[in-house]
Design a protein around this nucleic acid. Structure first.
Lengths: 188, 188
DNA sequence: TTGTATTTTCACGAATGTGTGAAAACTGTA
DNA sequence: TACAGTTTTCACACATTCGTGAAAATACAA
């Protein structure tokens, strides 16, 4: 760990520190950071040595990172060991992360809400609770579906959308106007 | 806790279970859930009784929820106790959450990346690492700025944008075409 | 198949996080 | 100021998570 070059070291340390806030542990964060900045795939021993973790710890960390689809397993010719690398395209990474987060952190709640919404509340309190759940469901469902849709766009298109920022409103207003004009034309 | 009406109970339990995935603990999750579905503001004692938590635990949980801006403190006339309620507008809640998450989970990383990007790499490995950090920075910075922008739009506009889903691409393509036509006109 | 390199599992100690009751601190009223 | 209601802090016990080395399982070459 201390033998890492300064920028890499800084990056790896930061991911270790932030790990807990992101819901992964220090080890996993550092392993990912190291793989992310590495110019070539790494095997578990290299990681264990660079980070001064036990081999078993690295094994567990890599399993976890694979479950998040943040690292890809790669086999090098003439080498039996397993090598890992991070996808090169950061948009790809972003997508995997978002998708996995939704699956783990959002979907279960959506299911619970859906189940609760088809029940018939047995009293005043539950009737109100159900109304609140309805509001929550609407919001989560809309954002979730939207994210799903947008994810399918090319990175280039997403980039274009994002760079518009809040001026997307103007575009939206414009298209709405066009639609109304269109409708008027048809109906008149 | 067991005296809560069934739908409320289900909701509260779920938030307790999901808590760990969301980076809050069971207690905090349940307290929030209870406040969210409650038709009226609640005080700490009511929460402690309903959830069968110790009074001190509720106090700590409420502090945490306030720090996330998920509950609002409210004083009821003629009552010295502090009452808490969740903002009624779910979009408002969503915004607070997103903002707070960015502040805690994204900003520190952006700072670190910015700092690393102005350094001069001392060797090949760090040169490559810096390139990767550059890519990561670009992505996070763009998304972060975009989120900031969009957050300022009215819930209604955001809703409109989201309901468009991936067909936003068509709109984007259209406006691009308009711009090109416009430019041609000017230049010709 | 055997043998060896490699990965995974597991039990354990260490570290961290959680929830409690009691005590301290605070707040507003008289 | 005194004091009663309310909130917060704190030390402690308990639970959970983390990281390790050793042993077991797996994969593959000969």
């Amino acid at each position: 760990m201390n033998s890492l070059p300064p920028l890499t070291h800084q990056f790896v340390s930061h991911f270790g520190e932030m790990g807990s806030r992101w819901g992964i542990n220090r080890t996993v964060g550092q392993i990912y950071a190291l793989i992310f900045v590495s110019p070539k795939p790494l095997n578990a021993d290299e990681i264990a040595e660079a980070l001064e973790f036990s081999r078993s710890n690295v094994s567990i960390g890599l399993k976890e990172l694979q479950s998040w689809r943040l690292v890809k397993l790669k086999h090098l010719a003439g080498d039996r060991r397993e090598y890992f690398e991070a996808p090169q395209d950061v948009w790809e990474i972003f997508k995997s992360l978002a998708e996995e987060k939704r699956r783990r952190e959002v979907e279960p709640t959506l299911s619970m809400l859906r189940a609760a919404l088809v029940e018939t509340p047995g009293n005043e309190a539950d009737a109100h609770a159900q109304k609140r759940m309805q509001q929550m469901h609407e919001l989560i469902d809309l954002s979730s579906t939207w994210f799903d849709d947008v994810q399918r766009l090319s990175p280039e298109t997403i980039g274009r959308l994002m760079r518009m920022g809040s001026s997307i409103k103007t575009v939206l207003d414009m298209t709405d106007k066009l639609k109304i004009v269109g409708r008027k034309k048809v109906s008149s």
